[in-house]
Nucleic acid binder design. Sequence first.
DNA 1: GGGTATGATTATCG
DNA 2: CGATAATCATACCC
Length: 381
Amino acid sequence: MDDQTRMMTGLTGLGGLAQADVGDPDSVRKQQSLGQPQQDIGDILQQIMAITDESLDEAQARCWPEESPAHWGGSDEPTEGGRAGGGMAGGGLPLNFQHRKHALNCHRMKPALFSVLCEIKEKTVLSIRGVQEEDPPDPQIMRLDNMLLAEGVSGPEKGGGSAAAAAAAAAAGGSPTDSSIEHSDYRAKLAQIRQIYHSELEKYEQACSEFTNHVMNLLREQSRTRPISPKEIERMVAIIHRKFSSIQMQLKQSTCEAVMILRSRFLDARRKRRNFNKQATEVLNEYFYSHLSNPYPSEEAKEELAKKCGITVSQVSNWFGNKRIRYKKNIGKFQEEANLYAVKTAVDAANVSAQASQANSPATPNSGGYPAPCYTPDGRL
DNA sequence: GGGTATGATTATCG
DNA sequence: CGATAATCATACCC
């Protein structure tokens, strides 16, 4: 590295002074009396201190619009731009605040200074290095990734959808027959979420790379004045990426939340309650009223009913539970319904037996539990 | 929009 | 564990 050699040559004249002279009024005065080079060094150091106090934006704002754009803005080469030679800024050092950066850059002592900075850097960077080289993969983000993948949000376009549908079907509780509508709806919403997720992700990635480029350019630009190793730029980029990946994690998190909400909305039957279809309630009612004396279907009967109605066994149980309690609570209200189903079953029975012109009284094998429907015109028994 | 119907859930009991 | 009673939350209808 040729910085190294430069550093050595620079150090011969600078090493001791650089450390001893800053901030010591006496020594400054001494130097001033000593002659031009020492005074220059003091000035340069002060300028450096001033510049480091300045924010980047300030410095940029101050320096860009000034009259030496060719030098600052023009060339892109990272480090060779400004320190061409010692004789460049031969004349009186312009102490104008506005121009100090430029002046500093052109100063003949600059290479030496640069070398000093290199040396200091060398030490500090070495001590910094290794502090946070490898960050372990965040378990949180892995969890989110896994979920998004499982949910089909972050996976490939089409396969993901079917995977999610399968998951939904599995979670729905084993009645894949009548929930296709829900599934397509669910799928559509999921696809929407996925689309938003991907577009956001893309935006973030774009912003990240833009910002990274910006910072890299800045650093390269700065590297003319102060030593910045590629390693350091790399580190900075890594830091930026970490920041952006934490934003990404937020995106993933909120996407996960959205999926969870979607799932709960579609799979939590209580929230998205749908009435059973007409045929199903008919079947259930038929059974109920034809077993009014003992409206407690056995497990097998429940399974049969569930199959016939395209619902689950527990739904059948729920239905009968609700029906019993509501019937009992207000028999009058169910009178009409009861009669209707009684007639229906009677008709069915008649049809089946292919017998008897006269419809006999409703076939309600009454033997206990619930009162049979009797034909009181309105209401209570 | 409000009232009712209805499927699901919860607490309690035996 | 199943039944019941009360309750919740939504669907549905006017």
